[in-house]
């Protein structure tokens, strides 16, 4: 369970171009939920996801993960939490070019010092899950958009996180691929993952998989997580 209380995020604080991306947001994401953040461009979805995923430090407010207060933890511990608890699927996929799909999938596990052979086997299994094992040795820049996303999802899963965070996962996909993505979301949900998605794509937003929908406008939550 992630709980944020009175979270705000200021960019360029104290300077003339100061900008409040998230204002005074309080919300709770429970385990096993599939939450979607919706809102117009610039409404602060990505910023809020970053805060929830311990990647962006809020300017004020408190975050707790489970029953642990993590607002003011030093960088090292946040990194560890990020690695063990969260799997990120970025808007731009953010795969590392020039490396193979398999290498990209294994990267988040490197700092754990897991033995190579089991790690590699696990990475291949996850790729297999998304029918991507035949592309394991392919360099990521040669993959199609859908394939690249599946590699990005596999990478998010390698450390077996409890929470998956996806930012605009269908922005670069056509309708067919977007529906395929939703199939994967279903798989993940059935696998017991907590899922947080930012999207204004109706295929995602209106999907019956969503257990909670949060709408943002100008950094504020305007409907408080209406359950479906």
């Amino acid at each position: 369970m992630i709980k944020v209380t009175n979270i705000s995020k200021l960019y360029n604080a104290g300077r003339p171009n100061e900008f409040i991306a998230v204002r005074d947001v309080t919300l709770t994401v429970s385990l096993g939920e599939v939450t979607v953040l919706k809102g117009p461009s610039g409404s602060g979805k990505t910023t809020l996801l970053g805060i929830l995923g311990c990647m962006v430090r809020p300017s004020s407010g408190r975050i707790s993960l489970g029953d642990r207060e993590i607002t003011s933890l030093p960088e090292r511990f946040l990194t560890q939490i990020r690695r063990e608890t969260f799997g990120f699927i970025f808007q731009q996929f953010n795969l590392i070019k020039g490396l193979t799909a398999l290498e990209n999938v294994m990267i988040p596990a490197y700092p754990t010092g897991e033995r190579y052979a089991p790690l590699r086997r696990r990475a291949l299994e996850i790729l297999e899950l998304f029918n991507m094992s035949h592309k394991a040795a392919a360099k990521v820049e040669w993959l199609s958009g859908g394939e690249a996303q599946r590699v990005a999802i596999a990478r998010a899963l390698i450390n077996n996180p409890t929470i998956i965070i996806a930012d605009e996962p269908t922005a670069h996909l056509d309708t067919k691929l977007s529906h395929e993505f939703m199939v994967i979301v279903r798989q993940l949900r059935e696998g017991g993952k907590t899922i947080l998605i930012a999207s204004h794509d109706p295929i995602v937003y209106d999907s019956e998989l969503m257990t909670s929908r949060i709408e943002l406008r100008d950094g504020r939550v305007i409907n408080d997580g209406s359950r479906s």
Partner: peptide, 13 residues
């Protein structure tokens, strides 16, 4: 950017 990605997916400084 690559360093940012590595940090984002859980690499420490």
């Amino acid at each position: 950017k690559e360093i940012g990605i590595l940090k984002a997916v859980g690499w420490e400084s």
